[in-house]
Nucleic acid binder design. Structure first.
Lengths: 217, 217
DNA sequence: GTTTAATCGATAAAATAATATCGATAAAAA
DNA sequence: TTTTTATCGATATTATTTTATCGATTAAAC
């Protein structure tokens, strides 16, 4: 689906980038797949395979990859340079937390504005981002040709709002609600599913505690 | 690592559960793997395989699985019944949003209290959850034998706080900071990594837009 | 009561992802 | 200058995950 590049690879890319920033800060010019793998608990093989998909310049035998070049290549690969505009819909607690999250800019995401139905928050600013009434949403999306929406409305409004966003021209929805939303197949959805994450964490914890008990028998 | 059950399977479990709740609400007594697969965009094969790992009672040919039994089995499998206590560390915007998030209770997670260093928030209550000074953290964790921590401190304090949590006896950390934290290998960590998610969403969006352009040529 | 249709559960096949291997190469050491 | 060593990049192998197949079974239709 992604022209050969797997989702797992995309998942790991920001981790490589993060480690590379640290290495640059430490003053290192070159880094090997072995070092990256160690820092991120991966194998050198997978690191080399992943990087081969993002990088332009080859690594050098004996020394590895040029840190700066690699940073450029991955940033470019992930589109961190050409900032993408987005809207955020639903400015409750979580919505406002995300609206004020400065980290997004580092990832090339630029939230234009928040939208909400409640007069209590309309007109407020969170870290310089204005909250507008949902009535103005479709117009803004169309006018600015925005493709990405962050969805943080209450669960029961998730589907209706997703429909409205699609109608307005949004092509990718980052869904922070627990609701499963249905969209046409040419729309990307990414679910930030707390329940899923917690299920996995609980499973890990259970396994760890069990292993420990077995040992102490 | 999880006694045969893969992480992907754990990820899908809460989705099944969610759909089953809906079906129960609709008054359905039985559901087939085909129906579940349709609602969640999966194949019947994977649904059957996943469920076979969580359920106790067999499905019936021709009609499928008993909705109520299946709900019980999955809830049990995921540990939604025996509520797990947790602490939340770092009560900034995101921390408070999560502190006030009622959904956790549905997943069997019970946040005992929030902890923070700032006098601005200490003593406040968010949805009935009190915010305490970090000085009292270790004592509370030990006294109540708490195993799970939600980490929402600023990135630069993530590692130090993780260390403190491990020292206090925490065995599973749900990390909402962008920092990569190092912990002993008998501690579970789950990274809620925005950068990763955004990378995947961007990749999906890019692919969709590209496919569209190709068609219009 | 017999036939038909839908589904399960087990297993086989295919697809995908991760890991290991190895020749080529460049830096460093001898 | 020659040898050694560490690493890349390509490819082969292995492991994991998903999908497909199929006999057995049960509810419903006839």
């Amino acid at each position: 689906m992604f022209g050969e590049v797997s989702l797992q690879t995309f998942h790991r890319m920001p981790q490589y980038l993060k480690t590379l920033y640290e290495l640059r800060k430490e003053g290192r010019e070159f880094v090997s797949s072995v070092t990256l793998a160690e820092r991120l608990n991966l194998t050198p093989s997978i690191v080399k395979k992943d990087l081969s998909q993002a990088k332009v310049q080859d690594g050098k035998p004996k020394v590895g990859y040029a840190v700066n070049d690699l940073i450029d290549d991955i940033e470019n690969f992930l589109g961190y340079n050409n900032a993408k505009d987005a809207v955020l819909v639903g400015c409750g607690k979580l919505g406002q937390a995300l609206l004020g999250y400065r980290g997004f800019a580092d990832y090339g995401l630029n939230i234009i504005a928040g939208f909400d139905i409640s007069d209590d928050v309309i007109g407020q600013k969170v870290h310089g981002k204005i909250i507008l009434p949902t009535g103005k949403m479709e117009g803004a999306i169309k006018k600015l040709d925005i493709k990405i929406a962050i969805l943080t409305v209450p669960q029961e409004h998730a589907q209706a709002m997703a429909d409205a966003l699609v109608k307005a021209g949004i092509r990718a929805i980052w869904n922070f609600t627990p609701a499963h939303i249905s969209v046409p197949e040419n729309i990307a959805v990414r679910n930030e599913n707390m329940a899923s994450s917690l299920a996995v964490l609980s499973a890990q914890l259970r396994e760890i505690l069990k292993r420990e008990q077995d040992l102490n028998k």
